[in-house]
Design a protein around this nucleic acid. Structure first.
Ligand SMILES: [Mn+2]
Ligand SMILES: [Mn+2]
Ligand SMILES: [Zn+2]
Ligand SMILES: [Zn+2]
Lengths: 139, 139
DNA sequence: TTCGTTGTTGCACTTTAGTGCGATAGAATT
DNA sequence: AATTCTATCGCACTAAAGTGCAACAACGAA
């Protein structure tokens, strides 16, 4: 509990950012959940108990957290920007029924042959999106 | 030339759509190019020689072509909806330098193991996005 | 060729993600 | 504790993708 709090604060600090309740709340919220929320969802959850961060602050926090590499954007469905607290390489699963987005571990699909691409093209990284049905929606 | 024209018209027709100059132009443009244009880019190219389709019509044509499965949307970068005239399974390459988007053939990465996913999750399809540098931008 | 149905047009309008601002509050360093 | 610099706030605003509309045009079946 306390350790997690310190870890989060340290992460923010060592990136040269000031630790503010708003940044802490946004980052902690993102780390605590395994879905991939939109700005709107983060805004709501972060203010659920008591108001702590305005819309402008949540945008600001996400922008700065993304700039220092603590957080990343994910673009899976049409015009919706989602955020991911995991920055290590991994893949994503999208349920075609309920739309939920789950992490898939890197090891599931590793060592793909990036050598065999058309001439002149140098692939340096890749990411896979798997579609199907999730636990809840399983046929 | 003439054959291609007939093929395109037939494709539209056999999907139960009326053939109009606007739909033809949009679909033909999408088939003729190997990039993955935005609505705006299609609108410009289609009207380059002489005005043939309004903004509303291009949107309308793309919507209806997508509904019948002749065309698909691609979402690779932030909030930008692009269109793809290829509907067969394939992957995409994104140049991190110039942003160009190229098709990668399905066979490059086929038979990925969709069995080893977490319990309860059934993967039915996948798509890979490779990032790197393209022919032009090669180091 | 005629006619009914459907598509197109231009433009104003909606929608929604994201930003700018100036005053206030608060973090961190001394 | 004092100081300084930076972040937050609410809210109005921007920007840009996409839609609604109603008059008009034109596709295609017969
Ligand atoms: Mn993730
Ligand atoms: Mn493609
Ligand atoms: Zn589901
Ligand atoms: Zn390039």
């Amino acid at each position: 509990m306390e350790n997690v709090k310190n870890l989060i604060q340290q992460r923010i600090k060592e990136k040269g950012l000031r630790i503010t309740p708003q940044r802490y709340a946004v980052y902690a919220n993102l780390l605590a959940r395994c879905d991939h929320p939109t700005v709107e969802q983060i805004l709501i959850e972060v203010n659920q108990d008591l108001p702590i961060a305005s819309k402008a602050s949540v945008y600001s926090a996400l922008t700065v957290l993304r700039e220092v590499g603590l957080v990343r954007e994910i673009l899976l469905d049409e015009g919706i920007t989602r955020y991911d607290g995991r920055i290590d390489p991994h893949h994503h699963f999208v349920c075609v029924n309920c739309g939920s987005i789950l992490d898939l571990e890197w090891d599931n699909f590793k060592d793909l042959p990036l050598q065999n691409l058309p001439t002149g093209i140098k692939g340096t990284s890749y990411e896979i999106t798997v579609k199907g049905t999730c636990d809840q929606c399983g046929s």
